[in-house]
Design a protein around this nucleic acid. Structure first.
Lengths: 347, 347
DNA sequence: CTGAAAGCGCTTACAG
DNA sequence: CTGAAAGCGCTTACAG
């Protein structure tokens, strides 16, 4: 059945085999074994076959770390994030993973829980591992000191999602202004909402600042009124959004006719609060940002502007792999409106 | 500001420093440096301080892989899963990650996409990395051949979620029968549903078989009728569940009074289909299985039996770390009913 | 086409 | 308390 049973069981006894083992077993040198196993054409076809067969028979498995020590190559990349269980992050990880596995690199997942000390520790450990690089979604509060430390490790790094202007690292993330414009166009334009708000997100995180500013300027340009009571920050998850929105509603703060949410997860919390209160899309239209898979599963279905998380992850991976990332490179994909029911369309 | 600027810039020029570098710079031997840096009490406090200061000044960073080659220790563990972006998996990863980082191990995330060949490739690569172990959610179709190959790598492994009886690996996952019993008790007992079904999950995957069987036997014991048209398999995601449930409804197949869903993600798809059709919990009560964070955000809120995904991940990690895992060890936490609205409670 | 030897950056007995 | 030396499992010039 399985090819494994072909191996000589007694030979496996001693556990870890080395190239030396297969070399002596064959009466050749380690060099020959190394060359043969790597498929170097300098060794004859016949020898290669013998070596390969013997390696298999002995249950030899290549020791990549030993090889790496010699060649100084690494094939391990870190993905350092505040919360792996956040669907946006998970979907990005999927794309990064795919890109890296094509370069036969591994991606190491590490959670900072938004804690700077943890983040610093992880980055140091990655450096000690001589990781080939890392993609970082910076924890809140990441500043010049942390960035200096990162630079000092000499590891290639790409920053994701939370752009820290002037950080001099390549950046991959949504085009914040385009995203907001798309949401506004739809809400202000096709739905002609009059009172509007930008809801949720971490107060002084860069994307939040950028998006809010753009939102406000769009509102002014359109001559609408911004419902400031609903223009509040939240933690980046549904629970926080739900809690805040529910409280607002309970306090009698009338929801605006339209709200764009800082992320889909936040929108999911808002939708839940609206549903609880029996407020339909016609009264309060919501659109999210991110385009996670889950957005199609809410009731009403969440209208969102997709930033293509898996592609973003893949992009980050490719930047790392092929080092096209001169400092300050900014990469993003053109965001795309995905229309469902939460904005009041299709109902 | 940042301590990094304390380092002598010219010293960092040549990039990677080694223990040898700091040794010669100090006029001591590498042994002393190694001992000092590891905090071995055999070296005097004074020397240690000097060594540490010099290491810092030179921007030396410990090369863990080199050390590992020598000590044959590894601190990297694989988490091999069909779909990282599945919230249940992501939440388990969170727990695993936490456990491993306490043992200062890294967790490497790898996606099989339910493909046996890629799963085999990943396991081999992990072996080549000399990973300390791996936790595996087996891809569909994983059988004796794959398991033999896994065993042959000599890596400690724990199987998660999909128990393959007789595999002789330690297993961590939900107690399938307890989970089903809890769901049934609530639905049959407190809600007195008469027509019932077990919906979704991968047809011949072990947990699906186990749970379905238990469900059927519970139904018989209670003298109820099982709505076989709704006792259908799905892929393990919301979209598939939504599609199947919607089709069933569109075809006029009347939903049973109660359905237990194979997972929360599947339940989310079912809820969406039910919402689309305007069928309230009173007419079709649903309870999910898993207890993911998202379950609280659906409308109606999803009643579910939680298996504590993060704790499961942590458990798997601890099993790997401390090797309490004699073959066939089965670990699970006692599942817990989380009551919300989808079962018809609290409405 | 194949082998002997040095070296990647550490750790760890073993002397002194 | 500190140093010289061997070795972890590979790769890679360099000879032959």
């Amino acid at each position: 059945m399985s090819t494994v049973t072909d191996a000589d069981p007694t030979a496996r006894e001693g556990a870890a085999q080395t190239m030396q083992d297969v070399a002596s077993s064959l009466g050749v040198s380690v060099s020959t074994v190394s060359l043969a196993l790597r498929g170097n054409p300098v060794v004859s076809e016949a020898t290669r076959a013998r070596v390969q067969a013997e390696a298999l028979r002995l249950g030899y498995v290549y020791n990549r770390s030993a090889a790496n020590l010699r060649t100084k190559r690494r094939h391990l990349v870190g993905f350092v994030v505040p919360d792996v269980a956040n669907p946006f992050v998970a979907e990005s990880a999927l794309g990064l993973q795919a890109a890296m596995s094509e370069g036969s690199q591994f991606v190491v997942l590490a959670n900072t829980h938004e804690d700077l000390a943890v983040q610093t520790g992880i980055i140091r450990e990655l450096a000690e591992e001589r990781a080939a690089g890392l993609v970082l979604i910076p924890a809140i509060g990441t500043g010049p000191d942390e960035l200096d430390a990162l630079r000092a490790t000499q590891m290639p790094a790409v920053i994701m999602n939370r752009h820290l202007p002037g950080d001099r690292f390549p950046y991959v993330g949504a085009d914040d202004e385009a995203v907001v414009d798309i949401a506004c166009d739809h809400l202000f334009g096709v739905h002609a909402s009059r009172t509007v708000a930008y809801f949720g997100g971490i107060d002084d995180a860069v994307p939040h600042v950028l998006r809010r500013a753009r939102f406000s300027s769009n509102v002014r340009a359109a001559g609408l009124v911004e419902a400031m009571e609903w223009g509040v920050p939240t933690r980046p998850n549904s629970d926080s959004a739900y809690e805040v929105a529910s409280r607002l509603i309970a306090e009698g703060t009338r929801p605006p006719e339209a709200v764009v949410c800082h992320s889909d997860m936040i929108a999911i919390g808002v939708l839940k609060a609206l549903n609880d209160a029996g407020i339909p899309p016609a009264e309060c239209r919501v659109v999210g940002i991110d385009g996670i898979r889950l957005a199609s599963m809410t009731t009403p279905g969440l209208t969102t502007v997709s930033v293509h998380a898996p592609s973003l992850g893949r992009l980050a991976g490719e930047l790392l792999l092929h080092g096209t990332g001169d400092d300050e490179t900014v990469r993003s994909l053109v965001p795309q409106l995905v229309v469902r029911e939460s904005c009041g369309c299709r109902t």
